[in-house]
Design a binder for these strands. Structure first.
Length: 480
RNA sequence: GUCCCCAUCGUCUAGAGGCCUAGGACACCAGCCUUUCACGUUGGUAACACGGGUUCGAAUCCCGUUGGGGACGCCA
């Protein structure tokens, strides 16, 4: 059934630290992590920081944070690619000595002109190999050369991909790529190949935007005389508009999802289902995913990112989450919101209300919103719908019901409910006629956890006070 | 433009020639439950892009068309 590797696989996630860890990268990391964990292998992290201009410390920190938040732990030390530049250059030199690479003295301007002209003439924009067989003696003075791979011009290069199948590229389509820049630093193409080889990476699982690169990289492996790793190119995640989700195009960093109140386990489940499936299963725990994951079930078509489904999954995991964990998160968020730390009676109320609250929220943000009334100081500001509910006769009923509440013993949800039912029976009201205004008075809203339970949690003094606030406002002279 | 990839409900997907009058999930609509909302539950709307083959038989295989996406940097 599931194709298992001959030996424990070694996978890697190799982001470039030029921004945050975006959602597509997160999924790539997840798949690599899952594959390694599934087959008892190793999952490594390599920071591809060879672009010194654009790599930043901040971006590196964000990648670490993002992976940690997602719970994707890596094995061994993080490899920083730039630190290995000398080794990359050595590989290029070796190729040069074998006659499989050459110096090219074209200036960047010359190359741009070459590409522009090709495009203008409807030809593919590629380097024409003008220095491939030219005598280095003809080199113009004062120009530092780049080193290019002398790639085969005949035949084809085939990528045997675990997801995409066998993909063939005519070698005529692949030009002589640059290995070493004129300043002697290695390019991405050279670095990945050398590093993946040196790190003994067995499976390269990455976005399929790298598929064409793979053909070139295979040429490099061949030139270096190394065996290629196994490749698996997973389809990209697209935005709602169907275009590639990238840093430049609407992709959010994982920390944005964290801040929007999504749980890491929900993210993992959602990302897993984008491009991978296991029959009709939808809710898949990470443990289950580790047991089931395989590259043969990865689809080949791109998927669009859909917040509605993420919300649904997050709601599920929220309901599943331990109350203490949610209390801690929501407590912090409430404190940020109100500027007052959640302690004492507020903390007790929040903890008591959590089971009822979490059943109704899709995100931690919503959960925080819905918990706000618990820690808000009187008098509460009622929203429009709530205000309408306590207008007129309802306030009178509340005032009357308050009398019963004031002497109710013991103070419990069941007791309050019994009192409410007795009250409505005696006054020929429907339970909702009392419960809804009560909800409005106690929570300032028309939506909340079960109101009798909520009343118990709030405590008698607070409940009576909140009722008084509403009743007083209703009967204040200026309000008629 | 050239090369490469993709194509099942709005979205994520199941489907590896007959089990498909195409299944599930999200979203949406209606009902039930109910003190509100949510959960849960019942039912509903909704898809094999198109055209040719191959075959007794095609969502599944082949070709083409169309549509979408990706790659074409001294970025990664």
């Amino acid at each position: 059934m599931s194709t298992s590797p001959a030996a424990p696989p070694i996978t890697r996630f190799a982001p470039s630290p030029t921004g945050y860890l975006h959602i597509g990268g997160a999924r790539t990391a997840l798949f690599n992590w899952l594959y390694a964990r599934r087959f008892g292998g190793t999952f490594r992290l390599r920071i591809e920081d060879t672009d010194r201009q654009r790599s930043t410390e901040d971006a590196i920190a964000k990648i670490f944070d993002g992976l940690r938040w997602l719970g994707l732990d890596w094995d061994g030390e993080v490899v920083f690619q730039f630190a290995r530049a000398a080794g990359h250059a050595a590989a290029a030199k070796a190729l040069l000595e074998k006659g499989l690479a050459y110096r090219c003295y074209c200036s960047p301007e010359e190359l741009t002109a070459m590409r522009d002209q090709a495009r203008a003439e409807g030809r593919p924009p590629r380097y024409d190999g003008r220095w491939r067989d030219r005598d280095p003696a003809e080199a113009p003075p004062g120009i530092a050369p780049v080193i290019r791979l002398k790639a085969p011009r005949e035949g084809e290069t085939v990528v045997a991909d675990l997801v995409q199948g066998e993909v063939r590229f005519p070698n005529s389509e692949l030009d002589d790529m640059i290995l070493l820049r004129s300043d002697g630093t290695p390019t991405y193409m050279l670095s990945v190949v050398v590093d993946d080889h040196d790190m003994a990476i067995s499976h390269v699982i990455r976005g399929d935007d790298h598929l064409t690169n793979t053909a070139r990289q295979i040429q490099l492996y061949q030139g270096l005389g190394w065996a290629s790793p196994t490749f698996a190119h997973i389809p990209l995640i697209h935005g709602p508009d169907g275009a590639k989700l990238s840093k430049r195009h609407g992709a959010l960093g994982v920390e944005a999802y964290r801040d929007m109140g999504y749980l890491p386990e929900a993210m993992r489940n959602y990302l897993l289902r984008l491009g991978w499936g296991h029959g009709d299963d939808e809710i898949i725990s990470t443990e289950q995913a580790v047991a089931w994951f395989g590259l043969d079930a990865v689809g080949r078509s791109p998927a669009r990112f859909d917040f509605a489904k993420l919300d649904n999954l997050n709601g599920h995991y929220l309901r599943d989450a331990a109350d203490e964990r949610l209390v801690e998160r929501v407590g912090t968020m409430l404190a940020d919101r109100t500027g007052v730390p959640i302690t004492g009676a507020d903390a007790i109320r929040l903890a008591a209300a959590m089971p009822g609250l979490k059943a109704r929220a899709k995100t931690l943000l919503q959960l925080t919103d819905s918990a706000l009334f618990l820690v808000t100081r009187r008098p509460l500001a009622l929203d429009d719908k709530a205000r309408r509910l306590v207008a007129g006769g309802a306030a009178k009923h509340l005032a009357e019901f308050r009398i019963a509440l004031a002497v109710l013993e013991p103070w419990s949800a069941a007791g309050i409910e019994a009192a409410a039912r007795a009250f409505t029976e005696a006054t020929a009201l429907k339970l909702g006629d009392l419960a809804q205004p009560l909800r409005a008075a106690l929570t300032g809203s028309t939506v909340s956890p079960p109101i009798f339970e909520t009343a118990e949690i709030l405590g008698r003094d607070e409940v009576l006070g909140r009722i008084d606030d509403v009743v007083d406002a209703a009967f204040a002279p200026e309000n008629g």
